[in-house]
């Protein structure tokens, strides 16, 4: 899978190139600022990009803005946004489109090499990867209506679904059986008034409802 990286710290950029190469990705370009990054993406048309939020020149949110541009102009390219801190507001902006092929993680997560590569593959494969920190921020801010009907356990399951995990991963994280998770998921679908349809699609809708509630 072909990747373009946007990261201004040379140290981290080179580290990411090495890490992704070791993980079986093909890094076709690595840029140091947002403009260069967008140019490289236009040139190489990668399958997935990994981009830092804070980059030159203003060191605020140019990486995020570049990611938003990509999501609009090239929805086929998967976007994983990395940052030293995650912000609920950035996540909301990033997820304003269809909640797929998108990820937003703390840079800390790179340290857990295996998990990080899994998340990147999941995003590239059309899924989502949201940092637990940003999910808890979203939970603080989104308490309204349909979510009030969820039990705390169901909220936990939904939060893990928002992170992009599968039922078996959720079961492992919550120390319950996979069938119990399946029950919770169905209950969430019912409470959020999601009509029966293809399961994956409903998962996406549930996450969307969760983020936009």
């Amino acid at each position: 899978m072909r990747v373009v990286i946007g990261e201004d710290s040379v140290l981290l950029r080179e580290g990411l190139v090495r890490l992704l190469a070791a993980g079986g990705f093909e890094v076709v370009a690595a840029a140091g600022d947002a403009e260069e990054f967008l140019k490289a993406v236009g040139e190489h048309r990668p399958d997935v990009v990994v981009v830092d939020v804070r980059m030159p020149p203003s060191f605020t949110d140019e990486g995020l803005r570049a990611a938003l541009v990509l999501r609009r102009q090239h929805p086929e390219i998967a976007v994983l946004v990395l940052s030293q801190y995650v912000e609920e507001r950035y996540a909301t902006e990033l997820l304003s489109g269809p909640p797929s092929k998108v990820g937003y993680l703390l840079k800390d997560r790179i340290a857990d090499v295996g998990d990080f590569l899994d998340a990147l593959r999941r995003v590239a494969g059309g899924g989502t990867a949201l940092d637990p920190e940003v999910v808890s921020q979203l939970l603080v801010r989104r308490r309204s209506d349909p979510l009030d009907r969820l039990t705390p356990r169901e909220r936990d399951v939904l939060a893990l679904m928002a992170e992009g995990r599968s039922n078996s991963a959720i079961a492992a994280a919550l120390f319950v059986s996979e069938s119990a998770v399946g029950k919770h998921v169905n209950s969430i679908f019912t409470k959020l008034d999601l009509p029966p349809a293809e399961t994956d699609h409903r998962r996406v809708l549930a996450v969307l409802r969760f983020l936009q509630a």
Partner: peptide
Amino acid sequence: AQQRLVSLAMNLGL
């Protein structure tokens, strides 16, 4: 410091 620590943690993880 933060970038350096991320890089360190990543290398250790690798």
